[in-house]
Design a protein around this nucleic acid. Structure first.
Lengths: 210, 210, 210, 210
DNA sequence: TATGAATGAGATTTCATTCAT
DNA sequence: CATGAATGAAATCTCATTCAT
């Protein structure tokens, strides 16, 4: 009994995906050459268009599963989070460790694909993914900060700092991918980083009204 | 008596540089079209090759001065710094404010050029500039940390965190350029960021030997 | 006992033909995509080549019956006609009405196929069908006019005008197909058109010798 | 003293236009190959893009002057016409002769270009030109007929026949181009055609109210 | 000092067709 | 009976670069 995803036991398609992965990783989507990918796979460019709609489609073939699992995790976590407020940061360290751990796992389960998706997809239809993720986190964090500010007279959310901290957070994961191939090293790296970020949120999330 | 800046008092050259600046800013080096640049300047592509060696050369024409002044500032500061040790971070806050201020000034004196250089030069021979700067700072910070660690038994420099913090610092300036056109706003943004980074260095620069 | 029409009672073949009809109608033969046709029919391109020799063959499958009945009608009428002479035009209005009516019926019995055949087959081996029909009518009309001229001293057939009128006649039917989906409306349109054409033949079929 | 249009005494551009003219004439715009055109002109495809924006632009280079003079004539004539009413058809035969003559002259002054424009431009941005012309004439003729009908109780414009007659008229000119290379022969052909059409308008422009 | 012309190598994409299975 | 895979040749277009003048 075979599920739908594994139905395509197609060798050439997989080879194409493999070569595409390599090329995208090396040169990034925009500078990657379909010709080269096809040639590396021992086929003609036309063959690519049998298996995929176009260049974007090929990229999709490479990263779509990785994208799905990433988004699923993000949605899960940030749905939970929005219901809480910033004060949780001070209490529940474990939560963040847990999330970071899950995220690292998801990333390292599909290391190359995630790297392509988050760091080499410029020029493709997935090019804006990092900005999207940042926007999603941004919204969550700002909402939380505002809820927290509501009970702190004379304070309001410091959107500028929050936005930057979000950037730093997301970039930290990309940094991690670019510096550590090993999952355990990555874990060891990301934990103090998250601690540091939490301190940042606590310190800079709110500013005095003026 | 001709000063350095007016060495090239050529009108067409300047116009070409002006139009290139616009195009590079908009599309980034790789996607910028020489044809369009030349056309915007009221010339043909050939003209570009009279004034500049090639596309990289044109980019050089646009950003070289900015690059020089940036590097001069960096060299100056990081030459001084290397002679000190990490303990200065705790004492001389003013120093960092001063440096950040100088850096912001240098950047905002040549805002467009710096933006191109640091954020839109991918694909050119300046493409690695950010990495280079990071490497330079990295070396300085690690040296400082190691000197500091030398007098702290049971501790050594935490290269991984230092490297990441350097990344964050450099990215913070790029973030600043992408979010604030106004110099004063930029100043207001960068100061707490630097404070936060200093806390980071103090906290994470050293780790226990294991 | 199987009649001719059900000779190919193949389901897939019929489905292919149906989808091809749609695609040819929409885009014309040249721009029609075999891939799309096959996909619409729930098959792959290869299947097309099982049932048909090539793209032309598929078009044949779509329009051959329509072509046959059209040609049969044309042959029948223009075989009869050649034996008469132009004088019939003045006497037997009914004949033309009758022919036009039969033609409209044949066309509207296979509306889509006729439209493809006569108006969307450019690029295929049937691309010249309209020219062929015109040539056939042309021959008939000129023959008739010459026979008529034989008894009219100082006159000869005006081939140029006859040829043009033939064009107008054929185009009128195509015009009809492109403007009227309804058989009755088509009838109402084509009758005055035929009247007008007959006046044209009477007036311009012969010219003075010079 | 050289006017702007003749400033480009460019040999290659003209050669490219010449070869394009030939190819468009033979195969029509859609099936014409830029490669072949360039090769025939002894250049590479890239050269085409130096002189023209794209394939449409090349077609523009071939037919734009012809198009201008055609449109100018049409505008001139149909601006005049709209002010008159259908009754003029019965009186001023000369007018139509004059118009037809002018039109034939304009067409035969740029024979190849007009043929391409009106009969081989399908697939290009000029592809709808014949429809546009028909629409323009249609509007004029229907307006005229309606004005005429206003003074004829129990009558109204027969839009269906008028539209068809417009088609026939426009097609007649295209027919002319496809059958007569010689301007005088074309003239001799088009005159009785116009007479015939005028009779058609008179007879069928109005129909009884029902 | 610059133009204008052209190259050449590359890009992505489309498509009818073939053929082993 | 039909698929699935792949070809190969074509298409349009973009671009940095060169060079004679």
């Amino acid at each position: 009994m075979m599920n739908e995803k594994n139905k395509d036991n197609n060798e050439s398609r997989e080879k194409l995906i493999g070569c595409a992965k390599k090329e995208f990783l090396e040169k990034g989507f925009a500078k990657a050459s379909l010709r080269k990918i096809a040639a590396d796979a021992g086929m003609t460019t036309g063959a690519v268009y049998f298996f995929f709609k176009d260049k974007d489609g090929l990229l999709g073939g490479v990263i779509s599963e990785a994208l799905d699992s990433l988004m699923k995790l993000l949605d899960k976590h940030f749905a939970e989070d929005t219901e809480s407020d910033l004060s949780v940061y001070q209490q529940q360290d474990g939560d963040h460790d847990e999330f970071a751990e899950e995220l690292v796992n998801v990333i390292y389960d599909n290391f190359d694909e995630m790297t392509i998706l988050l760091d080499r997809s410029a020029g493709s239809k997935y090019g804006g993914i990092v900005e999207q993720i940042i926007a999603k986190l941004d919204y969550t964090y700002i909402t939380m900060a505002e809820r927290y500010a509501a009970v702190m007279p004379g304070k309001h959310a410091n959107k500028v700092m929050l936005h930057w901290l979000t950037h730093v957070q997301v970039d930290a994961f990309i940094h991690m991918m670019n510096h550590f191939t090993d999952r355990q090293e990555a874990m060891r790296f990301i934990k103090p980083v998250m601690d540091y970020l939490i301190k940042g949120w606590i310190t800079y999330a709110l500013e005095d009204d003026t």
